[in-house]
């Protein structure tokens, strides 16, 4: 079974310890990471998404240790960072196809899938518009949509519903829960999320440590 395992993961920036001795096994299903701002949730998600390397501890993907298994993890990953500098002069569709190409996906199929995802999250009418014309919520949905492209078995979502109204957040939630049936979905949220009742686990990150909420 697909599994991401963290063993005593720690992360420091210069002398500041941001994460300390974090261990957990993520199986298919939704895992919510909660905790106050600055607790280390986004840092943990960046480590999981291989955007950064841990200072200590080990990570395993499908039983194989990283960094040897990094390529395998990345080919199964969908990552929606909290803040990403989007290319303002591209249309949403062009941006998504750029990401699809970097994911090694069939572009025609990715285009159809992008259409379906954006339709469900209320962004489809704008996919041929430049990103520079997008509001904060539209940008958030676009970053979410690119993470969903392909069939990720590991989905790392950093506050995907922030800046969204309740109705749109629920649309994203429905897609997230669908994906969580077969993929390990790890999602940060600093508020009590409406997805909590459906989550396989809710973990609290505070002062760099993680425990069941």
């Amino acid at each position: 079974m697909t599994e991401l395992r963290l063993e005593a993961i720690g992360k420091s920036y210069r002398r500041k310890r941001v994460l300390d001795d974090v261990s957990h096994a993520f199986a298919p299903g939704l895992t919510l990471l909660t905790g106050p701002s600055g607790a280390g949730k986004s840092t943990l998600l960046r480590l999981i998404a291989t955007a950064e390397k841990p200072s200590s501890g080990r990570m395993y993907w499908d039983g194989a240790p990283l960094p040897a298994a990094r390529g395998a993890l990345r080919s199964s990953l969908g990552y929606a960072p909290q803040a990403v500098e989007l290319p303002e002069d591209l249309t949403a569709r062009e941006f998504a196809m750029h990401i699809a190409a970097l994911k090694g996906l069939d572009l025609a199929a990715a285009d159809r899938q992008f259409g379906a995802i954006t339709e469900r999250i209320g962004l489809h009418a704008d996919i041929n518009n430049r990103i520079s014309t997008f509001s904060g919520g539209m940008r958030r949905r676009l970053v979410f949509a690119q993470a969903m492209l392909g069939e990720p078995r590991l989905l790392a979502l950093d506050e995907p519903t922030a800046e969204l109204d309740r109705e749109t957040a629920e649309k994203l939630g429905a897609l997230i829960l669908e994906r969580a049936a077969t993929a390990a979905v790890i999602m940060t949220t600093h508020l009590a999320d409406h997805l909590a009742p459906d989550a396989a686990a809710v973990l609290r990150v505070e002062d760099g440590r993680m425990e069941a909420a």
Partner: peptide
């Protein structure tokens, strides 16, 4: 959009 579009391979 084709809502039944499968995930891209």
């Amino acid at each position: 959009a084709d809502l039944s579009a499968p995930p891209a391979g």
